[in-house]
Nucleic acid binder design. Structure first.
Lengths: 226, 226
DNA sequence: GTCTATATAATGATAGAC
DNA sequence: GTCTATCATTATATAGAC
């Protein structure tokens, strides 16, 4: 294994790839190849010599980020949901750019985003199932929908927070995400512990509605949309 | 009052503005002025003649969307949160492009996004306060943080869903958002009614931690981050 | 593998006729 | 107010020397 020190002691190809991951994550996918080349200390055409096109460069970044995070997932997995994993990973200086890239990816959509999202949903489902089995988590009438819902909201909340108040210095991403967790932990734990409502009327009304829909109204389909 | 039929019987300036709102909402803010001009049935330089620059055109779109939605908010306000308002508005054909624009705006960040977000948070705070006063909503240890949290998550969930599975035909935005609500209602109502946990241990542990933080650890600041 | 020089296409913006 | 013609800039991408 090599030292994890960035940019030193890497093939130009890898240096370009890392620079691209960092820039894409920092500024979005509209950054020019020139900027990336400059970051990597090479000329713009060399980027294309190695990767063929901007799209293929991005695809390679996707693959690299996916593989790297997947391989280090086992380490970081605590009692966590989708957002927790990202927040914890971002604390490690080496992984922060990858986390930024993942978040940019989800913000913009695309294949990698869906892949990560589905993996997060699957993780959540596992974690919730274990909780239900252990008796610490209440069962749901639709476990799959709940896992999807919780993941979507947690990830979305993180994204909204980060989009509306962007991180200027990439080195501060970890601190920024930690601040987000700090702001969110109390209301989240309150909600997860006691809920929001004082009675069951709304839930009961919905359950009646969904089993016996009023005429002319299509029955609500509890299948996931995304 | 004029008929609401789009594109007909409007000054060129207004037609351009509407075309820009629709295009920006549909394809994002990277669309070219030429495309917008074509949609409006005018030449590209005329767009600049009327608005000066692309940035000022976008600013005008922001202002128009904000004013229009604000003026029709009173109508649509039911027992709703941030997302509910947008979903309901998107059912009305005339407002769907404005909703798409707002969502794009939040996805990309910027001034309008923050303005809308803060308005949504304020609405949620009002609505929750009324619920607490009426005895239908449990009180929170930090009402402001809870309003922010719920708004952020609801809006973020909507955004993630829409980003990962984008709407192709703009006319279907309303149906798409309704499908999102359908997928989300059951788990949301379950969570809001019964919570997620079967005991209070995690919440109690956090409350102890936050009032008496372990040495060396900075006390968590429950202030909002965004 | 890496560069300089260049081709090509698209964008925001301007000039000036009508 | 609206157009056509055009400019300056920037983007991705290619050709070919070293």
């Amino acid at each position: 294994m090599r030292s994890a020190t960035p940019s030193d002691d890497l093939t130009a190809r890898a240096r370009i790839r890392d620079a691209a991951v960092a820039r894409f994550g920092r500024d979005g996918f509209a950054v020019s190849l020139r900027t990336i080349a400059q970051d990597a200390g090479v000329s713009a055409p060399l980027v294309l010599h190695h990767f063929g096109s901007k799209d293929r460069l991005r695809a390679e970044c996707d693959a690299h980020v996916l593989a790297t995070i997947a391989s280090h997932k086992a380490d970081a997995v605590g009692p966590a949901g989708a957002d927790h994993l990202l927040v914890e990973l971002a604390q490690v200086e080496t992984y922060a750019p990858l986390v930024a890239y993942v978040l940019r990816s989800i913000q913009h959509g695309g294949e990698l985003a869906r892949t990560f999202y589905e993996a997060f949903v699957a993780d959540a489902e596992d974690y919730l199932r274990a909780g239900v089995a252990a008796g610490t988590v209440r069962p749901s009438r639709d476990e799959a929908a709940r896992a999807r819902f919780l993941t979507q909201q947690a990830l979305g909340g993180l994204l909204v927070s980060l989009t509306l108040e962007p991180v200027d210095d990439p080195a501060q991403l970890g601190a920024r995400l930690r601040a987000h967790m700090d702001a969110v932990t109390l209301p989240a734990l309150e909600l997860y512990t006691d809920g929001l409502m004082t009675d069951r009327r709304m839930l009961d009304a919905y359950l009646v509605y969904v089993t016996d829909p009023p005429a002319g109204t299509p029955a609500a389909d509890p299948r996931p949309t995304s």
